[in-house]
Nucleic acid binder design. Structure first.
Length: 870
RNA sequence: GCCCGGGUGGCGGAAUUGGUAUACGCAUCGGACUUAAAAUCCGUGACCUGCAAAGGUGUGUGGGUUCGAGUCCCACCCCGGGCACCA
């Protein structure tokens, strides 16, 4: 708070609690005094607090945002009072589809739309009184920002973590555009409800699977909600098993490789299945079966994922006509094609063990394939098939020389045997797929890549050795039937900016609108400098080569994968952040955002971060060590807020009617922060009344400090004790994110103050400090009017006195046979005998003891005395 | 189907290691102030029996452990979230 000293923090002069006057007044005061500017590299301990990156949509701020930002703002203000140098930044994840779609519709430039949306968002944010350091704002669409997004992407590219592949994407013929997964609902476009289809297109893919093991193992280090860690673990989906290659009858050079987690059941494998997309489908198909196989493969290809998974409960398949040899039994077993085997997992082929797998059992039943049992309970209990044991005490049966072994023993023996035969090994599979990292859109970061011919690439690679890092294996693709190689731009040529375009209309071919901008697209290119001129002009000379820019753009995830690093040093032109800033600030101490990002954003960002760690750019191998998910605010009806339901509460209206302090306080009072909570517009009256009451206790009718507040008063013991309890409870509750109960405690305190005839100024000021993180405007106003020093934003958090919390008397509960029969104030250190005597004399307790023999006495000091009779 | 999270008054919710269930707030009803209203303040506030004092029953359902269970154990029901032919 280096700049806050000079501002004259005068209060307003209103007599009533006029929040419409008070709140803008203080918001302006904080802005002018730069009250929340984080100091770079200060001596104080740092605290880095981060909200999930907002997308500045045209719809503006909703209550969910307010909840999120109130949680972190309260923590930020509290940590500042605790003496931390707090970094509490905000910025804009501003590339993305809604803005582009809006721009297409209105014919306006997405950059203009984005700027307006950000202005609205920022103004709304300020109106709820958040203490962000706005001097560190970042914006993903700013070339000074995405220069580093492109730089990081180049590091991935150069390390061989980015490649190009033809991958199916959603294509909508009616809209003439490619759609994102979330724009496709039940096989129809979200906009216009047109049918969509799968169409293969050239895509950039990031090799996140190379980090699968570390992404899974390092979850253990993170202080995250367990449910989120479990979700990521399930998404990564590590699975230990075996690979086995089966010989194929009539195809001597080929083997069919499968993955199984239960190699011990191989004696029960009576057929095999390959996915319709498997590379050997054609080779395996006999002439007699060809027509049937081709029809099946074609049908499978035209099915959407939805049809193949959720809708396809029935098993389907077709026999190839070819057999494989089960390496355990030597038996010939048929090879089928069926779409219940996924091409994208494992090897795209399985050995089917129908007796011990539900899916295989169903399939075998439908096509009358044998179902021999090879696993049985150790105690010989008969079982019905399919018998899918999950680690019970079982043994192999009818399994040759493995008969009698446990599955674990059998796996070891079979893995070793197949390894010796050079046909198998123990192995690990992941569900995690590589990350499709391109969009056929305009409003995203361009890839800093130029596609050039193979011969040019070889020449550049030779000439630039050392200065331009190329991936170990060139990334290539086919453009107009020719092989092209991906050449990265030199760092000096970053950022690669988006060209100005007249129209954002889709091209109609599925390619990005960038593909239509020939001047930008087709260039003469100088590899050493990254300089270019349109190919319509003459080639500038030697060393210039013909190139074509990449027309895909990056997905919205790109900018949000590393923004938390840019806040540390947002203006740095030489690096994404300086090593000093990275060292001082480190990673966020607390990251707050919705659970809807549990997998994608949080996994992608971890991946990029680990790559940056491996490069030595960042000092830690995990970005977000402590994570908290706020719950969703539901509509009044308990349903998710949505325009179509008409149950949306608008924060602007709430602020107008009650003020930002009331809104903040009420959102926090609603219930546990992590819980889903319905919005109840009636309940807000309660917290508003609380703030009114605070005002009335501090300010008299004429607007000057209330006469009951004085520097000379000695507080009533009750008020004094409650103050210290409140300081203690609120501090603890903020640290543990249990804000709702700290508000209850503050209400209890104010109720006590109200009953006291007089209260000391020191007590009232200490309370205002405790209230300040939650309701900063009214707290600043009252602090200032009561003459609090120094400025409230620089005052240190009040200290509670533990001595004031221990009372000499406590209420001891008397129970007879475990039932509450009475209680009495007693000295804290009362003995059992003395307590028993009191209980015996207690008018409510005594009748229950009358004429009964005491069997047992349980005495818990300071809590209960339980007398067990008869 | 599998994996999580959760069921407490009319409502949102509170309750260290098992130790007074319903704090705080909303709504309700009654009272004070007022010509009246608003605002404010005081009180009421689970169910059954009872004039009362008091007693009994109560934290989704049914069992169990314990002197004592919202809290621990077993079985089940309902709601919410995630994953879903991953071999």
């Amino acid at each position: 708070m280096a700049h806050s000293g000079r501002f004259n923090s005068m209060a307003t002069s209103c007599k009533e609690y006029d929040f419409n006057q008070i709140e803008p007044h203080w918001q302006q005061a904080w802005e002018q005094s730069h009250a929340f500017k984080a100091a770079n590299l200060a001596d104080r301990p740092k605290y880095y607090l981060l909200d999930m990156f907002p997308y500045p949509s045209g719809a503006g701020l909703h209550l969910g945002h307010c909840e999120n930002y109130a949680i972190t703002d309260i923590m930020a203000r509290y940590k500042r009072a605790r003496g931390f140098n707090v970094l509490f930044p905000i910025g804009w994840d501003a590339f993305g589809l809604p803005t582009e779609n809006y721009a297409v519709k209105t014919g306006r430039h997405p950059a203009d739309v984005t700027r307006e949306n950000i202005d609205t968002f920022r103004r709304q944010l300020k109106s709820i009184g958040v203490s962000y350091d706005f001097s560190r704002e970042v914006n993903t669409t700013d070339p000074a920002y995405f220069r580093w997004t492109q730089w990081i992407w180049l590091q991935l590219f150069q390390r061989g973590l980015a490649y190009v592949e033809e991958k199916p994407v959603w294509w909508c013929p009616a809209l003439g555009t490619v759609l994102a997964n979330e724009e496709v609902i039940d096989g129809l476009s979200e906009v216009g409800k047109h049918p969509v289809e799968r169409r293969p297109m050239r895509q950039w893919v990031l090799r996140i699977t190379a980090y699968a093991d570390r992404l899974l193992a390092d979850l253990e280090k993170l202080d995250w909600p367990d449910s989120t860690k479990r979700m990521q673990a399930a998404w990564i989906g590590r699975s230990e098993g075996s690979e086995v290659e089966f010989d194929i009858v009539g195809l001597p050079g080929e083997r069919l490789k499968i993955f199984t987690t239960r190699v011990d059941t191989i004696y029960g494998a009576t057929y095999m299945v390959v996915a319709p997309e498997h590379r050997l489908v054609s080779a395996l198909t006999t002439p007699a079966q060809r027509a049937a196989v081709e029809a099946y493969v074609k049908a499978a290809a035209s099915k959407s994922d939805l049809e193949r998974t959720e809708l396809a409960k029935d098993k389907s398949g077709v026999f190839t006509g070819t057999h494989a040899i089960n390496p355990a039994t030597g038996a010939q077993i048929p090879i089928w094609i069926a779409d219940y085997v996924l091409a994208s997992y494992g090897t795209g082929a399985i050995m089917a063990v129908p007796a011990h797998d539900e899916r295989d059992f169903e399939f075998a039943g439908k096509f009358q394939l044998p179902i021999p049992q090879v696993i049985a309970p150790a105690d010989g209990t008969p079982v019905t098939l399919p018998f899918c044991d999950k680690g019970g005490d079982v043994r192999l049966i009818a399994s040759g020389d493995c008969t009698g072994l446990t599955p674990i023993q059998a796996k070891e023996r079979l893995d070793a045997r197949f390894a010796a035969e050079n046909r198998g090994r123990a192995t690990i599979q992941f569900k995690l797929r590589d990350w499709l990292f391109s969009r056929q859109r305009y409003w995203g970061e361009p890839f800093p890549i130029v596609w050039i011919s193979e011969s040019d690439y070889r020449a550049v690679a030779a000439a630039q050795a050392g200065s331009l890092v190329l991936p170990a294996t060139p990334v290539t693709c086919l453009i107009d039937g020719e092989i092209r190689c991906a050449l990265p731009l030199p760092n000096s040529a970053l950022p690669l900016q988006l060209p100005e375009v007249k129209s954002y209309q889709p091209t109609g071919t599925g390619e990005s609108p960038l593909a239509a901008i020939t001047e930008w697209l087709e260039i003469w290119y100088q590899p050493a400098t990254g300089a270019c001129v349109p190919v319509s002009q003459e080639c500038p000379g030697a060393g210039w080569i013909r190139g074509r820019r990449e027309t895909n753009t990056m997905p919205q995830w790109a900018g949000s994968c590393w923004y938390y690093l840019r806040y540390l040093d947002p203006q740095n032109a030489d690096a994404l952040a300086s090593p000093e800033a990275l060292k001082y600030w480190g990673m966020p101490d607390l990251y707050v955002g919705g659970a809807e990002h549990a997998v994608l954003h949080l996994l992608y960002a971890r991946f990029w971060h680990k790559v940056l760690f491996d490069l030595g750019v960042v000092p830690t191998d995990e970005p977000f060590t402590k994570l908290f998910h706020q719950g969703i605010i539901l509509g009044e009806d308990g349903e998710k807020m949505s325009k179509s339901r008409g149950n949306v509460a608008n924060p602007d209206e709430v602020i107008r009617a009650y003020g930002a302090d009331t809104l903040r306080l009420y959102l926090m009072f609603l219930g546990p922060l992590e819980a889903m909570k319905p919005w109840n517009p009636k309940g807000i009256e309660g917290v508003h009344r609380f703030l009114q009451k605070v005002w009335r206790e501090c300010i008299g009718e004429d607007g000057s400090p209330h006469p009951k507040i004085s520097g000379k008063v000695t507080d009533a013991p009750e008020v004094d004790r409650l103050l210290h309890e409140t300081i203690k409870k609120v501090g603890e509750d903020i640290e543990t994110l249990h804000y709702n109960t700290s508000i209850s405690q503050m209400m209890i305190f104010v109720n006590a103050v109200q009953k006291a005839p007089a209260v000391s100024r020191q007590t009232m000021l200490a309370f205002l400090q405790v209230l300040a993180p939650f309701a900063p405007h009214i707290a600043n106003e009252l602090w200032s009017r009561l003459g609090g020093q120094p400025d409230l934003n620089t005052a240190t958090w009040p200290v509670f006195d533990p001595a004031k919390l221990v009372s000499t008397e406590i209420k001891l509960v008397f129970q007879v046979n475990g039932k509450h029969r009475g209680d009495q104030l007693v000295p804290v250190d009362i003995t059992q005998d003395a307590a028993l005597k009191l209980a015996g004399a207690h008018e409510r307790v005594a009748p229950h003891l009358q004429g009964k023999a005491i069997k047992r006495i349980i005495f818990v000091p300071r809590k209960i005395l339980n007398i067990v009779v008869e």
